[in-house]
């Protein structure tokens, strides 16, 4: 069946089987390999993408379900410049092996859209559907908070 999506702002189409998982559609059919696969049980979150702005685990959706929807992956974060969440992950050493990083950044971005100034515990709660084996989460939390502060400053700068 044909699946049409808007991914990172671009319209893309591919012919897939009904059973094709969204993550495979993104990685294989659309050749966007920044979205990863880490488990078979919807547990790890390294496949997280934004579907119409909301984080979802793309290993637990069929590609056809994204038909007509908007998807954002890690490749779509940079808009000329790095998104503040990307810059903050580097600045705060929020990543090591990089495997969970795309999912973590997208979940962080979605959180910041609701709350630019989350507490440590609020960030931990928001990213608790995503596993990391390297960082102990300390610097991921910091990175998301730093990005929030950055976005918040940009926002007040824009309104000033």
């Amino acid at each position: 069946m044909e699946v049409n999506v808007t991914i990172n702002g671009a319209a893309r189409t591919a012919e897939v089987e009904a059973r094709t998982l969204l993550v495979d559609f993104i990685r294989t059919n659309l050749s966007l390999t920044g979205t990863h696969i880490g488990c078979d049980t919807t547990s790890c979150g390294v496949c997280t993408v934004l579907l119409d702005g909301t984080p979802v685990k793309s290993c637990t959706m069929f590609a056809f379900q994204a038909d007509g929807h908007e998807i954002q992956t890690v490749e779509g974060l940079k808009n000329g410049e790095l998104h503040p969440i990307q810059a903050a992950f580097k600045e705060e050493h929020g990543l090591q092996c990089g495997f969970c990083t795309p999912g973590m950044m997208l979940v962080g971005k979605a959180l910041l859209e609701e709350n630019l100034n989350p507490t440590d515990d609020e960030v931990r709660w928001a990213i608790s559907g995503n596993l990391c084996r390297c960082t102990g989460y300390m610097n991921i939390v910091k990175a998301i908070q730093t990005a929030g502060a950055e976005l918040s400053a940009a926002e007040s700068g824009a309104t000033a």
């Binding site: 990685r27 050749s31 966007l32 390999t33 920044g34 979205t35 990863h36 696969i37 992956t73 890690v74 490749e75 974060l77 940079k78 790095l82 990307q86 810059a87 992950f89 580097k90 600045e91 050493h93 990543l95 990089g98 495997f99 990083t101 795309p102 950044m105």
Partner: peptide, 21 residues
């Protein structure tokens, strides 16, 4: 020093074995 490798990872530009086609 901020990590050199991060630039590719934060942009989805890492190449893991499963990314090799």
């Amino acid at each position: 020093v901020k990590r050199q490798e991060d630039d590719r990872f934060i942009q989805g530009g890492g190449t893991y074995v499963d990314d090799v086609v």
